[in-house]
């Protein structure tokens, strides 16, 4: 390309386009560099680490292929933790979504004191999980905890909610549901407020009951919101583990241990990075599947974006 040619309009245009593309790249570089450092590189490095043995002073770490994964599947603790996490997801996701929907319907209806309701439901969302766990200790402590005192009024025996394997995981689930429901309510509330009032009036003229109106009109219109909330709830069922540090530390005998907590423990308490990395890879695969699900479903309803 010679200088004289650049005088021609289409070439000037091409130059301008190239200049803008370079600007674009310059604008993207800082963010991409940070993402590469703290998301992409660590993801790849995790896979890499998971394929090597744990190095000690005598035995330097060496390539072992999928051995860490095999060891993981033989590890009874890992199996228990995986089952715990599946139960945790299976309990907290549907209950908090249904509660969120009911709360939103209440906060959006003509109930007295509904602004108080909205504030009360939403408050747990702004509290740190660590602080929330401290608040809940008050409820669960055997003997003088609130639950025990209420139980005592009805002659129920004292229950050590956090201290016995049968109840510890459920006690942890309750805190998660309490924390999440109000957060998800907000998204439903927003969606409810976009439903035109005419629809309700039309349904009333047709003689439809409130229940029929909710089920046949409102719920289908809330489907995109439910998808969004569902994906968030799935991510949270991996992510929300802070309260374990205060309430149970995964115990008693691993009965309330969740996978991210076990990853933390393996890496930073047992110093077994390869095992923690192998678990992380499994979690990333699950999260990747969730991502693929969301992208596919969203593609189908492009109007949503």
């Amino acid at each position: 390309m010679t200088p004289t040619l650049s005088r021609r309009p289409e070439t000037a245009h091409a130059l301008e386009r190239r200049r803008r593309a370079i600007h674009g790249w310059l604008l993207l570089t800082p963010a991409l560099a940070m993402l590469a450092t703290f998301a992409f590189y660590p993801s790849v490095a995790t896979v890499w680490t998971s394929l090597f043995s744990r190095g000690t002073r005598r035995n330097p770490s060496e390539f072992v292929g999928l051995e860490n994964y095999a060891r993981l599947f033989d590890d009874p603790t890992f199996r228990e933790v995986a089952v715990n996490n599946i139960l945790y997801a299976a309990v907290t996701i549907p209950i908090s979504i249904v509660l969120a929907l009911v709360m939103a319907l209440w906060a959006n209806s003509k109930i007295p004191a509904r602004s108080f309701l909205r504030t009360a439901y939403f408050t747990p969302t702004v509290l740190p999980m660590i602080a929330a766990a401290n608040l809940w200790l008050f409820f669960y402590t055997p003997g003088f905890g609130v639950l025990d005192q209420i139980g005592a009024l009805f002659g129920a025996p004292s229950v050590n909610w956090l201290g016995q394997p049968e109840t510890a995981l459920w006690a942890v689930c309750a805190v998660t549901i309490w924390k999440e429901a109000g957060f998800f309510m907000i998204f439903y509330l927003a969606a409810l407020q976009t439903i035109p009032e005419d629809l309700r009036e039309a349904a009333e003229i047709e003689g439809a009951s409130r229940w029929t109106y909710t089920r046949r009109v409102v719920l289908p219109l809330l489907a995109p919101t439910t998808l969004f909330v569902l994906v968030n709830a799935m991510i949270n069922s991996v992510k929300l583990i802070d309260h374990l540090f205060i309430l149970t530390k995964g115990g008693p005998s691993d009965s309330s241990k969740l996978i991210l907590y076990y990853i933390w423990e393996s890496a930073f308490a047992f110093f077994d990075a390869p095992s923690a990395a192998a678990m992380t890879v499994l979690v990333l695969i699950v999260l990747g599947a969730v991502a693929a699900l969301q992208f596919r479903l969203l593609d189908r309803r492009t109007h949503y974006r």
């Binding site: 963010a31 991409l32 993402l35 450092t37 703290f38 998301a39 992409f40 590189y41 660590p42 993801s43 490095a45 995790t46 680490t49 991510i235 991996v238 992510k239 991210l260 990853i263 933390w264 890496a267 930073f268 990075a273 923690a276 990395a277 992380t280 979690v283 990333l284 999260l287 990747g288 969730v290 991502a291």
Partner: peptide, 20 residues
Amino acid sequence: LVLLQLFILPEVLIVENYAV
């Protein structure tokens, strides 16, 4: 690629992020 980070949470990558 950027959107993927919505799912590759910094919380999950603690082991390697610590090394970084």
